[in-house]
């Protein structure tokens, strides 16, 4: 990380302000504006789309180049973690499986 402390604090405050406005939105507006149906329908897809966009590149292209091979430890360990996540739906179990396999592969 190469950001100055002022920038970090700026980030924290700007993101925090936005988060508060998102949380306050309809608690403030209720009675004046109704949430339109298309908006609630769109919002349903936010977690799946964003989280996948964060996960998949970190596994498939960890060094900015697409690398689908057995030599890509993050891909192999990530697939194992994905199986653990699917069956357990539990963060700790996913971390335990994924990190253990990642560490073993790096030792080999």
């Amino acid at each position: 990380m190469n950001l100055k402390p002022e920038i970090i604090w700026g980030l924290i405050l700007v993101i925090a302000l936005g988060n508060f406005l998102l949380r306050f939105s309809f608690l403030y507006l209720f009675g004046r504006v109704e949430a339109p149906q298309w908006l609630t329908r769109l919002l349903r897809f936010v977690p799946a789309a964003v989280l996948s966009a964060l996960v998949i590149p970190a596994l498939v292209a960890p060094k900015n180049i697409i690398d689908i091979s057995l030599g890509n430890e993050r891909l192999i360990a990530g697939l194992a973690g994905m199986l653990a996540a699917w069956y357990s739906k539990n963060i700790l179990a996913t971390l335990a499986v994924g990190l253990t396999i990642f560490w073993i592969l790096r030792l080999i």
């Binding site: 980030l11 993101i15 936005g18 998102l22 306050f24 608690l27 609630t40 919002l43 936010v46 964003v50």
Partner: peptide
């Protein structure tokens, strides 16, 4: 970074609308 954080938290609008009544 700011945009990504906000997009992830868009779901709060849904919660806000559902708690408001």
């Amino acid at each position: 970074i700011v945009m990504t954080a906000w997009i992830i938290n868009l779901r709060f609008i849904m919660y806000s609308a559902s708690l408001a009544p």
